[in-house]
Design a binder for these strands. Structure first.
Lengths: 189, 189
DNA sequence: GTCTATAAAGCGATAGAC
DNA sequence: GTCTATCGCTTTATAGAC
């Protein structure tokens, strides 16, 4: 059989884009078929569980990406300071310099939180924890590192809100730069 | 005719709650009638324009509340420092100490942003501007005040995301306290 | 694996009785 | 001003041809 086109994994990024654009309830099957260029039959062949399974797959892929590209580097970078800097670079790229929104954040604010509580909770908890560990290795005390990590992860989410509200992606990058500046001096004053 | 029950204005807060809980697309008329305890007939009597007009009314009420309770005090408080402190108090109360989400933030992240672009944009722009003005009156230079204002307004939105993701309202109040601490020393170091 | 056709339910909105 | 009944459309999901 000549596998004509993509596997299930190829569809997930397209699905993510649809969910990001319209939210879970707004992502109708009409919009999904349009965004994936796949018929309903194909979609349900890949995701027999329907929209719920699609969102689950999207969240899993996001989780994997952040674990590989952000959380693990934060935890295991030889130079903790550099690991934090790399996080800002990766995050700026991931959110397309402020033009892309965080789906987990969207789900967290909406009614979707209840259904995907575990994954939504784990995503932010792991991010804060990994960043706090890096900051501690860079010289901060435990309490200060945790507080700073919460500020930064929250600040990133808030900057995405503001950037999209103002339709001004540059606002996000400016906020990222300021947060990074706020972290670099561990013992300086 | 014995006016049995509420006027249009009494319905708006109930509508706001429904939109906050389910988002615009998720706020079906079934959920709206349940949340307002009004039949479809009554709803459409108050809001002939349907859901769109309902959301417009909700956004307008939010805008009015923040202008009266937050933006104007920030701009005209005799003591700018105290005006900023009052903002944190008002915001903490408004969002029920982190148990309530910001509808404008939800709309900003979602597809609703396009339809309500002007109001969403204006809400955050006015907030940042009013806070920056207060910070400048409190001793910050213009650029620093604007940057700090963006950090704080964004930080509030982000803290709401994190608090709801973790289902831990206290996280929001802790973030508020840290942001306030970051602002009070204008000339101290 | 991909499509079209279709079923059953829910949607926003309207009409008309009271 | 509030209700119930109903319209037409869209929704999710399934069935079956190819």
């Amino acid at each position: 059989m000549p596998r004509v086109m993509g596997e299930r994994g190829d569809v997930v990024p397209l699905l993510a884009e649809v969910f990001r654009t319209y939210g879970f309830e707004g992502a109708s099957l009409a919009r999904i078929t349009e965004g994936t260029r796949l018929g309903k039959g194909s979609i349900y062949n890949f995701f027999p569980g329907g929209k719920e399974e699609m969102a689950e797959a999207v969240l899993s892929e996001i989780d994997t990406w952040f674990r590989d590209q952000v959380f693990q580097p934060l935890r295991h970078a030889a130079d903790a300071q550099q690991g934090v800097a790399d996080m800002f670079t990766a995050v700026g790229r991931y959110f397309l310099s402020g033009r892309k929104v965080c789906l987990v954040g969207v789900f967290a604010l909406g009614h979707e939180r209840d259904r995907y509580a575990v994954k939504v909770q784990a995503y932010f908890a792991e991010w804060v924890q990994a960043l706090a560990a890096a900051l501690q290795r860079a010289g901060h005390d435990a309490d200060g590192a945790l507080a700073l990590a919460e500020d930064v992860v929250g600040g990133i989410q808030g900057a995405l809100v503001l950037a999209r509200a103002a339709d001004e992606p540059a606002l996000f990058m400016r906020a990222l730069a300021r947060m990074q500046q706020r972290l670099v001096p561990p013992g300086t004053c």
